[in-house]
Design a protein around this nucleic acid. Structure first.
Length: 304
DNA sequence: ACCCAGGACTGAT
DNA sequence: ATCAGTCATGGG
């Protein structure tokens, strides 16, 4: 992994692509808490990055349009996982009224295959942060440490770049206590103590073990990386939102349920593509105000 | 002022 | 193995 070779060729010619992407809902997909670098333009299109190249994407009927220097059809298709047989995947879902509601809320929601390093950084920064703030951190890291490419566009800094930073300078990017985690993680990846390329070749359980060796990466963050970057659809991340929806709708409980019970249930109930089920549920309860009824307050509680 | 956010890590039982 | 405390910061 070279630190000097730019990943992006600024002189690459502008490419305009049109790909068949029936049913894809860009708005839902790009605002569903899996990616943090896309920005909506005033016209409702999306500016972001695919394969380290800046681009503009939008939907045009059943087509996905993408414009940017050096873009390739394969890179765009891979990023949006257009090769996946979504109908067959959804056919494996269990008969489940809650999941049906969640899927009906945003049927065009899809799971991306993003760059592992950037996804790793995003989710190290996600601990106890809201999605809007993770987006802010992503853009700060780009602005402070990335290469400027054109008008206000900054590439995401690679691991060797962040490894040369200081914890204090990282802290200026609103990272808080996550600054130490990201700094150590950058050095672990830059030194190849952990190889993100090799993880791609490992079985999921083994890949997860490798990811968890990285500072700031526990089970949940590792699962997000496996699902959103390494394309492992059987991985079911459980964060505070998914914990809540499982607990409330499947365990009918307003009280705490042990994580291991939720884990066992999710892994057995939602089928081999449970990662997609998880993303439908997550997006639904976050965006639909009437998805979850308000939590009942325990009666006769002593208040101070 | 209070509570929460796509948690992980540390040290005490 | 389990469990509470702690870690910064901003939004509602």
């Amino acid at each position: 992994m070279s630190s000097e070779m730019p990943l992006f060729d600024a002189d690459a010619p502008q490419v305009s692509l049109s790909l068949m992407a029936r049913g894809l809902d860009l708005d839902a997909t790009l605002t569903s808490g899996q990616t943090f670098s896309w920005k909506r333009t005033p016209e409702g299109r999306w500016r972001g990055w695919i394969d380290h190249r800046p681009c503009l994407v939008w939907s045009d009927g059943d087509a996905l349009r993408a414009v940017g220097p050096g873009l390739t059809r394969d890179a765009v298709s891979w990023y949006f996982a257009l090769d996946l047989p979504v109908r067959e995947i959804f056919a494996t879902f269990p008969a489940d009224p809650w999941l049906e509601k969640a899927q009906a809320f945003a049927p065009g929601l899809r799971i991306l295959r993003q760059d592992p390093w950037e996804t790793l950084c995003n989710f190290i920064c996600s601990s106890l942060k809201q999605i809007v703030q993770i987006e802010q951190i992503n853009h700060e890291l780009r602005r402070v440490f990335g290469d400027e490419i054109g008008e206000g566009l900054h590439s995401f800094p690679d691991a060797s770049r962040l490894a040369l930073a200081t914890e204090a300078k990282l802290r200026e990017c609103k990272l808080g206590f996550r600054a130490r985690h990201l700094f150590v993680a950058a050095r672990q990846v830059a030194s190849s103590e952990v190889s993100l390329e090799r993880i791609a070749t490992l079985p999921t359980a083994e890949a997860r073990e490798h990811l968890i060796r990285i500072r700031g990466v526990g089970e949940k963050v590792a699962n997000c990386i496996l699902l959103f970057a390494y394309g492992r659809p059987e991985v079911f991340p459980i964060d505070v939102w998914v914990d809540r929806v499982l607990r409330r709708l499947y365990f009918n409980s307003s009280q705490r349920v042990k994580h291991e019970r939720l884990r066992a249930f999710a892994d057995s109930h939602f089928g081999p593509y449970r990662g997609y089920a998880q993303q439908f549920l997550f997006h639904w309860i976050r965006k639909d105000p009437k998805a979850l009824p308000p939590e009942k307050v325990a009666p006769h509680r002593v208040r101070k």
